[in-house]
Structures are given as C-alpha cells and as structure tokens.
C-alpha cells in the first residue's frame, strides 16, 4: 500500500485533475492550430481532419462527433437516420445545478442533436447495417430513456431488416437526472440484444473513448465482437471512484483499451485508419454465413 494521502499530495492531485479536465473539455476548438492533448504537438487543424482526427505524432485519437463518425464510415448519402425526434423529458422534475428540462434544451442547442445517440440504417462498402453512434458532446453521452429507446428500436429494426448492428459507444454512463429509469435502460437494451442473437444477427460493438458505467455494463460489452479505439477508457467504475474506494495507486494503462485487450475483454484494438476496413472484413464474414 502506498500512503499518498498527505494534504500536500491531495492538493497536487486536485490541481492535476483540474488540468486534465480542462483539456478534455476543450476537445477540438475552431482555431487553425490544435495542440494535441496527449503529446502537446501543435497540429494544423486541416491536417488533423484529414488524418481522421488522430494525432500523427503520438496516435492520440480525438473524440469524434456522431456526424464525423458517419462521414468517416458510411457510404456517401447511404445513412438514413431513424427515430430522430425522440427527446428527453424531465419527468422527475430534477434540479441539480440547473433544472434537467433546461439542461436538455441547452444540450440540444449546443450539440445540435436531440440526444446522446444518432441511430439509422446505412451501408459500409455496400454492406447494409444498422448503425448507432453515441455522441459524447450531448450530456457526456449519458444513457437515459432516449438512448435506451433508440438503441432498442435500432436493434428491433435490424431484426426486421435482417441486418447486423454496429454501435459506437461513448458514454459517461447512466443519466442520473432520470433516476432509476436510466438504470432500466440497461435491462431493456440488453434484452433486445438477446432477441437479435436469437435471430442469428450479429452485433459489433465499437468502444470509443470513454465508455463507462451503465453503458459498458449493458450493450457495449455484449458484442459478438468487441472492438476498441486505441487508448479509449473503458470501464465499469471510473478510475477516480476506484482510487477513492481502495486508496491505492492504479496500475499504468489501467482501463485503457490495450489493458482490456490484455485481460481478454475485447477482441481487438483498431486504429481509426483501419477501422472501416476491419468492419468490412467482419461484415463480409457474417454476410457469408447468413442464409
């Protein structure tokens, strides 16, 4: 056991946390130059865009919005969004720093999305699939009734259309402002995946940075094949919660994609530049065995 709990260290840690948070929140600013969050390298934003938002120097994978993800993967104009008009509702009258109703409204304006996931039918290299792309920019990708419902309907749609499901997760976990109802979305989405499996249709889960809490402990971990982007934080309980619980330093690389690969929890860690090609190979493999 390391004793790291002196007051001095505690302040130091707080400061370090603040710095990390500050950087994470920025993500990609609109400026011409972007500093890589990991290695600090100054990058010309056009170059970064053309490199699929991956730092050419250190391979840091920047977070993508759902729009960017679709543009990178789906065949042009093939993506047709479904259930776009489901919106969150403040049914508990929840009020923390801001009333939930207002938080929803502000997030819709800020993220230009109705909730934390975009779902639809599309094609990747002419292979039809049901696509769900979570968006961390909407309330930290938290799963409430809307995310749960859209994931479930996407799976149900895939069963009707007899096509595979691919979901890109990026989520801070359950949306606490919806109380127990957010927890129940874990049950609902996992049950739907059971039905998909009954229908012999594949589910490919792509875990991106970060995938945590109730999202990980439901559909995100249930892929026939689980892929992850390099360096992605993937966990049930976040590192800070664990540190507080066990009062021990965490091992290096803990809960990162590569660590999960080592521990047998995911099938591969795939660089963003190879993601499309890998998905196509997998989809083709499944295509061959289906009826």
């Amino acid at each position: 056991m390391t004793s790291t709990l002196s007051i001095h260290n505690w302040f130091k840690k707080k400061q370090a946390e603040k710095e990390v948070l500050g950087r994470e929140r920025l993500d990609i600013p609109g400026g011409l130059w972007v500093k890589c969050y990991k290695c600090g390298q100054a990058l010309f934003s056009k170059d970064l865009e053309s490199n699929l938002k991956v730092c050419p120097k250190c391979n840091y994978h920047f977070k993508l919005t759902s729009t960017e993800r679709i543009a990178q993967l789906a065949d042009e104009k093939s993506f047709k969004e479904i259930n776009a008009n489901i919106r969150s509702k403040d049914f508990l009258g929840f009020n923390d720093a801001k009333p939930y109703a207002k938080r929803i409204k502000d997030s819709i304006t800020k993220a230009k999305l109705n909730d934390a996931i975009v779902t639809g039918l599309g094609k990747i290299c002419d292979l039809p699939c049901a696509l769900g792309i979570m968006d961390f920019s909407f309330m930290g990708g938290s799963m409430g009734s809307v995310v749960g419902e859209k994931v479930t309907r996407l799976i149900e749609e895939a069963i009707v259309k007899k096509c595979p499901v691919i979901i890109f997760s990026a989520s801070g976990g359950a949306r606490m402002q919806e109380g127990i109802m957010s927890l129940m979305q874990m049950a609902k989405t996992s049950a739907a995946l059971g039905r998909l499996r009954e229908n012999s249709l594949p589910f490919i889960s792509v875990l991106t940075d970060p995938t945590t809490g109730g999202t990980t402990a439901s559909f995100a971990m249930l892929g026939d094949i689980n892929l992850a982007e390099p360096g992605a934080l993937i966990c049930f309980a976040g590192p800070r919660v664990i540190e507080q619980t066990i009062r021990q330093k965490l091992p290096p690389g803990f809960q990162r994609a590569e660590y999960l690969l080592d521990h047998g929890m995911i099938d591969c860690v795939i660089n963003r530049k190879d993601l499309k090609e890998t998905l196509v190979k997998i989809l083709r493999w499944f295509n061959n065995v289906q009826r």
């Binding site: 874990m186 049950a187 996992s190 049950a191 995946l193 059971g194 499996r197 990980t216 402990a217 439901s218 559909f219 995100a220 971990m221 249930l222 966990c235 049930f236 309980a237 919660v241 664990i242 619980t245 066990i246 021990q248 965490l250 091992p251 803990f254 809960q255 521990h263 047998g264 929890m265």
Partner: peptide
C-alpha cells in the same frame, strides 16, 4: 469497484446477466 473487479470484467459479467 476495484482493480480485480475491473480486470475480470465486472461490466461484462453484469451485461451478460441482463441479456441472459
């Protein structure tokens, strides 16, 4: 929530139970 629990797949264990 502990190191071992994460390494042995707490999230996967729960998720699988839900589906099953």
């Amino acid at each position: 929530c502990g190191i071992g629990a994460e390494e042995r797949g707490q999230a996967e264990a729960i998720a699988k139970n839900l589906r099953e």
